[in-house]
């Protein structure tokens, strides 16, 4: 329809507004969907909080055991902030992920997603942003407040840390979405995706910086992980931005690296989806 004269600004503009409304409506549905699971949300926030205590004490013990009192270049307060903000972000980016899309592919329900005038990835992404926004309110805030209440936390000192952290978190959500989609899309080719799923959990947990800050690793290894894999961009980067671990220029560089990975992986998602649709076998009739 509009593709022929898409270059003409009025037509493009006319298309953008409804497209945005559609996207926003799907995002809203993602938010509402998760708000129906109140009890599971409470349970999840509780579990994140318990792990917050565990990880804080372990990292504080690590710092206490070093000569300088610093662990991986973080002081005690930075470690506390790192852990508690990390426990909150974990749910916002949905690091653990789910096999929901893979299940839809396996059962054939994915056919319904193809029968809508919106690209499936756009639909999934919009819904995931709604989920993420719900998690910001319900899963990020409780652990962060608990950390504030029970420990001495590091509060950012530079004004631009706040917007940079928000940007970095948004990129982390996109990045994590793209990775989860790719892992789920394996189901187009394999019926059992438990293997890739566990590989993903390990990759995201270790290389994302959940189990320990990546700075604890030998420098060359750490740099390699950061540049060669998207994982650090999902947790470690926003957290390092928040605790102002590096010089401002370096922090901006890390966020730029996130942008590169987001573009790369989202492109990958569309290619995979296109190829999958061509070879699609809808199961169950």
């Amino acid at each position: 329809m509009g593709s022929v004269n898409a270059t003409a600004p009025p037509s493009a503009l006319r298309n953008i507004v409804p497209a945005f409304r559609t996207f926003a409506a799907i995002t809203g549905s993602g938010f509402r969907r998760y708000s129906t699971y109140r009890q599971a949300t409470v349970a999840g926030a509780f579990t994140n909080t318990v792990f917050g205590f565990l990880r804080t004490y372990v990292l504080l013990a690590v710092a206490a055991g070093t000569a300088s009192g610093l662990a991986g270049g973080y002081d005690r307060e930075q470690l506390v902030t790192f852990v508690w903000a990390g426990q909150g972000l974990l749910a916002v980016v949905a690091l653990w992920g789910s096999t929901e899309i893979a299940d839809r592919i396996r059962t054939g329900d994915v056919a319904s997603d193809l029968l809508r005038p919106v690209h499936p990835i756009t639909m999934y992404l919009a819904a995931d942003l709604g989920r993420a926004w719900h998690a910001v309110l319900t899963r990020f805030v409780p652990p962060v407040l608990t950390g504030l209440l029970f420990f001495d936390v590091y509060l950012p000192r530079q004004w631009f840390t706040a917007p940079l952290f928000v940007l970095s978190t948004a990129l982390a959500v996109l990045l994590c979405f793209a990775c989860r989609f790719l892992v789920n899309a394996v189901a187009y080719w394999l019926t059992d995706i438990r293997g890739p799923m566990i590989a993903w959990l390990i990759g995201s947990g270790v290389l994302g910086g959940l189990f320990f800050p990546l700075r604890f690793l030998p420098e060359p290894l750490m740099v390699a992980m950061w540049v060669a894999t998207p994982f650090p961009g999902m947790l470690q980067t926003p957290l390092d931005v928040l605790v102002e671990r590096d010089a401002p220029a370096m922090r901006c560089g890390l966020v730029a690296l996130q942008v590169v990975w987001v573009v790369l992986l989202l492109t990958c998602c569309t290619v995979v989806q296109r190829r999958a649709e061509r070879r699609l076998v809808i199961h169950g009739g």
Partner: peptide, 25 residues
């Protein structure tokens, strides 16, 4: 694949401890 990843998953806890002791005595 399962077996391999499961082994790695189990090693993670141990790996984490080793990494922590890289930083501290």
């Amino acid at each position: 694949i399962d077996l391999g990843t499961n082994m790695v998953a189990t090693m993670l806890d141990v790996l984490t401890v080793l990494v922590l002791f890289r930083v501290t005595k």
